[in-house]
Simulated assay, not measured.
Amino acid sequence: MTRSVTRRRLVVTAGTLTAALAGCTGGTDDTAEPTPTTTDSTAALTDSAPVPEDASCGVCNMMPAKFPDYNAQLTVEAGDRVFFCSSGCLAAYYVDPGNFEPAHEGATFAGLWVHDHETTELIGARSAWFVRETNADRVADPMQRNPLPFAAESDAEAYVAEYDELSESDILRLTDFDMDLATFYRGRFFE
């Protein structure tokens, strides 16, 4: 236990120093690459963070660090950071956070990040375009059923154009996520 407390203090100290130095060089937005941050500062809540090796998905309990091209994360304005194995788990949590963490019922999110389906770069979920992919056989991602995030609308449109059963109506924004979408992707995790 002492070792993890010491390591945590070192990470918090390093993250605070990094955040302080970043503040001197200019602001960031939720489209930036992951940088070391802490969750005890309001500014840090708007920055993505590296996924800890021991973090478990806030919905399904898988290990997000094992899926570096697919994992996602969000921060709650109250100060918590939640990691996910995939965009489908983030979608479920975004729609009904209180189902997974009672303290987050009605929570407001400071930042949300997903990995672009094509480039695998971490991007801001608020600015992303999502394709409501319904065919688990087309994508080899965790949980085998996820909305596919794209940084550019044109990339989402190109993906949809490849498949007859998909249409422009399958292109969504984060604000379009609803309980129907959440239960389609992660229904078994709702009580």
Rank of each mutant, 00 (worst) to 15 (best):
D141C: 14
D96A: 14
F83P: 01
F84N: 02
R132H: 12
N146R: 01
N146E: 10
R132I: 03
N135V: 06
N146A: 10
P142V: 09
N135K: 05
F100G: 05
S127Y: 00
R126G: 08
C89F: 10
L90T: 06
P147D: 02
L90I: 06
W113A: 01
E133M: 07
T120F: 11
A92P: 08
Y93G: 08
A91Y: 02
G124Q: 06
L112G: 03
E118S: 08
N146L: 03
T120N: 13
M143L: 14
V131N: 13
C85T: 13
C89W: 13
A91G: 05
P97V: 00
P102I: 04
I123Q: 14
P147F: 10
R126F: 03
G98M: 10
A125C: 12
R126Q: 07
V114M: 03
P102V: 04
T108C: 05
F109I: 13
A152D: 15
A136L: 07
A125M: 13
V131G: 14
T134D: 00
E118V: 05
H117V: 02
A125T: 12
G106I: 04
I123A: 11
T119G: 10
L148H: 13
S127I: 03
V139R: 02
G124W: 01
L122F: 08
E105H: 14
A92R: 04
F109R: 05
H117N: 08
F130L: 04
H115M: 04
I123N: 12
R145L: 15
F150R: 00
C89A: 12
L122E: 15
R145F: 13
A103M: 08
D116N: 06
L148K: 12
E118Y: 05
V114T: 10
C85P: 05
E105K: 14
L122R: 15
W129P: 00
F83Q: 04
P147C: 08
P97A: 15
T108W: 05
P102E: 13
E101F: 10
F100I: 02
P149K: 03
D96S: 15
P102G: 06
T108P: 01
A125D: 09
W113S: 00
A107T: 14
R132A: 05
Y93W: 14
A103L: 11
T119A: 12
A107K: 09
F83L: 11
D116E: 03
A91P: 01
Y93E: 12
V131A: 11
S86A: 15
A103H: 09
F130A: 00
D137T: 15
C85S: 14
E121H: 07
